[in-house]
Design a protein around this nucleic acid. Structure first.
Lengths: 333, 333
DNA sequence: CTGAAAGCGCTTACAG
DNA sequence: CTGAAAGCGCTTACAG
């Protein structure tokens, strides 16, 4: 019943090797036999089994894409960036997302095993909290891998990250130069978040560069959830800031909502980071920093592609993409 | 260099078959030899090659997930629904999205070939515009396949869809019973959209059931984009409706934005469909209909799983999930 | 230009 | 309880 290369060979009166050559345009095949073979292939609607090809070539033409569970705004963009370069190259994407109930180490073992089982030819990994030890472990496997959203200066691995520091700094420049704000509160993300720390660093550097004294009680610790922005609102209002810079849009929204619930609430500028899908729709439309997630996906895909095509030994790519200030009305503009 | 089952067998002084049995707990292996084998496996960090297993078992443990390019609100939810049931079952997801520049037939051939190449064991397909002929073609391949968001009553195939008709009808009930509206305009999607047509059908049935005369000039043809909602606004306002029911949230938003730009604009109820990620954040928060996308993903995954476990011949599952009315303020509540 | 044969790394009757 | 052997469906030197 099942139609294989042997059947085709038999029907065409040639060997499997010749059929293989005809199908792959590899080696010489006389035009006549080739034509005959292709005709039979057509008639029987024969398509070679990818599993067999994979085994004999030791190549799956598949790369694993690892993303956090969050159905956040940008994961879709990363995916489309990647897919747009893979589709034309006959490369496939094996998607693995984190389960909410899984521990970080379970997740990591799960995606590590994709490589160990040789189920994929390489990996694109967006794992915000991964540690250097694990990255080194992955790298030791010698498969093409690119990490997204993080930098590992000491490790010989490809990374594509986003300039959080600079984005944050630009936002501060806007608040300070355009709006003349001096009393600017900052809401951080979780203490272990690399992104949050970079954004905080941008805030602090800008203050320093503009000669504004840093006040530690202007810095509030959130956890990236909208709730935390809400809960912090009261305490933040006590210091009577001119502006509140939140390390992400969610917390900015939480703060804004709580703010609007106060009667006679003060006019405070509120800005965020991420440019979430809804940021432009809220009231007032949120001034924020946009991360080039689609570009990130595209670049990662191109890097993997190049590695797959044999440039395994080239120097690691350490790319950092620029963020863009998105000025809307919540800053007072 | 590469460590295979043969090496392990050699090191353990047994045959490959025995190693295979020890690893898979298939057949009998004496505790002693099993222990010895497992120890060596550990030491050498041996992980069997998934490609080889796939070939010999003719099973990839992978299912293809086909989604439109749109990084829309619900695709993320579908994915997490699917992943949540696959992760624990050692099933993998091959993700394929539509390229914007691709023709529908190119796209379909691309995902059809996943099956023909035996790259996946089954398919979960969200292809809003697929035609019956193609569905039949897929079905003929005899692989487990479930179609999302559409029904094919005449075809022996699993489907998981959403009750657009009922969702639309419920919305109308709300507008008519709670708000006593009679003059309700409707904005459709593209004429060929199945979803749009079902939603329109709900609108028309409700009118009829409540004895409200249907006025054809209350129905406006949009194309699901925000722009089309905007562009239709002027014409819609001419008929002075009490409420505008848009076949999706995007167009409702477009209409709302245009409406708010008019000075002294009338108080018109505006409601949508989809419960997009941003719908609750806009001003006023949008009353809409929520589709249970995560559930959809979960159910599809469970169906595929069951088919994969051998219940290939069972009757096709024709599931239709309920939508939920999400009442916020844009309807006047 | 073509074929026989070995190989990719597993699994699985079958025989003992 | 274990091993020898065939098989999964391809590719690819090698020889001619």
């Amino acid at each position: 019943l099942k139609i294989t290369i042997s059947k085709i060979a038999e029907l065409a009166g040639v060997s499997k090797a010749t059929v293989s050559r005809a199908l792959n345009n590899s080696g010489y095949v006389s035009p006549k036999t080739k034509e005959k073979i292709l005709k039979i292939v057509q008639e029987h609607n024969y398509v070679p089994d990818a599993k067999a090809i994979s085994l004999s070539k030791n190549l799956t033409n598949t790369v694993g894409l690892i993303l956090p569970s969050t159905s956040g705004p940008f994961y879709g963009e990363i995916i489309s960036g990647i897919e747009s370069v893979f589709a034309s190259k006959k490369l496939y994407t094996l998607l693995m997302t984190f389960g909410v109930s899984e521990s970080p180490s379970e997740v990591r073992n799960r995606y590590l095993s994709l490589l160990q089982e040789k189920r994929v030819d390489g990996l694109i990994i967006f794992d915000p909290d991964v540690d250097e030890a694990f990255v080194s472990k992955i790298v030791a496997l010698k498969y093409p891998c690119v990490f997204l959203g993080r930098e590992f200066p000491g490790i010989d691995v490809d990374t594509v990250s986003v300039d959080n520091f600079r984005g944050s700094y630009m936002m501060m420049t806007h608040l300070i130069e355009v709006h003349k704000f001096k009393k600017i509160a900052f809401i951080t993300g979780p203490i272990e978040s690399y992104d949050s720390n970079e954004r905080l660093r941008g805030y602090l550097y800008a203050l320093s560069d503009y000669g504004i004294k840093r006040e530690d009680n202007y810095i509030f610790r959130g956890d990236f959830t909208k709730e935390s922005g809400r809960n912090l609102a009261e305490k933040i209002l006590e210091i009577k800031p001119e502006a509140v810079f939140s390390a992400n849009d969610e917390m900015a929204l939480g703060f804004l909502e709580k703010l609007k619930e106060q009667e006679n609430h003060p006019q405070i500028a509120v800005v965020g980071f991420d440019d979430a899908m809804w940021s432009k729709f809220i009231d007032p439309p949120l001034t924020t920093v946009r991360q080039p997630m689609e570009e990130m996906g595209k670049l990662a895909a191109r890097i993997i592609l190049e590695r797959l095509q044999g440039n395994q030994s080239k120097d690691p790519v350490k790319a950092m993409l620029h963020t863009h200030l998105v000025v809307r009305h919540s800053c007072g503009c």
